[in-house]
C-alpha cells in the first residue's frame, strides 16, 4: 500500500477528518472515472462518488491494508454503482440509438462519443449482465476480478458474461450496428 495512504488512513481512524479529505482528493478522479461508466450525468456521478467515500469512511476500520487502498475503493464504488442501477436506472428511458452521433470514420471517433454509445447499448441489458460487460469492456477486468469485487462466484460471472454477450449481439443486430460502422471492417 502507498505510504501516503497508509499514514492518512491511520490519521483518519484516529479522527482526523482532514486526513480523510486528502484521501478523497487523491483518489476521487479514479473513482469518478469508474462511476462515469455507471451514469453519464455529472450531478449523479458526483453523488455516487460522494456516497462511495462516505461508505469508505464508515468502513475504514474494516480495511485490512493487505491490498492497495484504491482496489478497496473500486470495490465499494462498483457496488455503489450497481446499487444505483438496480434502484434508479431501471426507471430511466433509454435514448434511441438513432439519436446518437455516429462517427463517419476512425478520425471522427472520439472517446466521449464512443463511451456514450457503448453506455447506451449496455444500458439495454439487465443490471447483473450490464455490470459484467461494463467491467470487462471499460475496466479490463477478468472474471476472477469481477467475482472478487461483487462477491459472486466465478462460474456465475462467466455465465452472466456469456448471456450478456449473446443478448448484446442481438440488440446490436436490431440496431443495425454493422451498417452504421461499416467503415470499421
Amino acid at each position: 500500500m502507498d505510504e501516503l495512504d497508509r499514514l492518512d488512513i491511520a490519521a483518519a481512524l484516529r479522527g482526523d477528518d482532514e486526513a480523510f479529505g486528502r484521501l478523497v482528493r487523491r483518489h476521487a478522479p479514479a473513482v469518478a472515472s469508474l462511476l462515469w461508466r455507471f451514469t453519464r450525468d455529472r450531478l449523479c456521478c458526483e453523488e455516487l462518488v460522494q456516497e462511495t467515500f462516505v461508505e469508505a469512511f464508515f468502513g475504514l476500520g474494516r480495511f485490512r491494508g493487505d491490498a492497495p487502498f484504491d482496489h478497496w475503493l473500486r470495490r465499494i464504488a462498483t457496488r455503489v454503482g450497481y446499487r444505483f442501477w438496480k434502484n434508479r436506472d431501471r426507471l430511466r428511458a433509454c435514448v434511441s440509438l438513432d439519436d446518437l452521433d455516429y462517427p463517419a470514420s476512425e478520425a471522427d471517433l472520439d472517446p466521449g462519443a464512443a463511451g456514450a454509445l457503448v453506455h447506451e447499448l449496455l444500458g439495454r441489458l439487465p443490471p447483473p449482465e450490464r455490470l459484467v460487460l461494463t467491467l470487462m469492456y471499460f475496466e479490463d477486468c477478468d472474471t476472477c476480478e469481477i467475482a472478487q469485487r461483487m462477491g459472486w462466484t466465478r462460474a456465475m460471472v462467466k455465465m452472466r458474461a456469456f448471456r450478456a454477450r449473446r443478448r448484446l449481439q442481438a440488440i446490436a443486430r436490431r440496431e443495425h450496428l454493422l451498417e452504421k460502422f461499416g467503415w470499421m471492417s
Binding site: V24, A28, L35, L109, P111, A114, V118, L121
Partner: peptide, 23 residues
C-alpha cells in the same frame, strides 16, 4: 457486432469524466 462494441469500448477507455468537486 461484438468486435465493433469492443473497439468502441477500447476507445472510450481514454475518456476522462468532467472534473467533480466532492471533497
Amino acid at each position: 457486432e461484438l468486435e465493433i462494441i469492443l473497439k468502441l469500448a477500447r476507445q472510450a477507455r481514454r475518456e476522462t469524466p468532467p472534473p467533480l468537486r466532492v471533497t
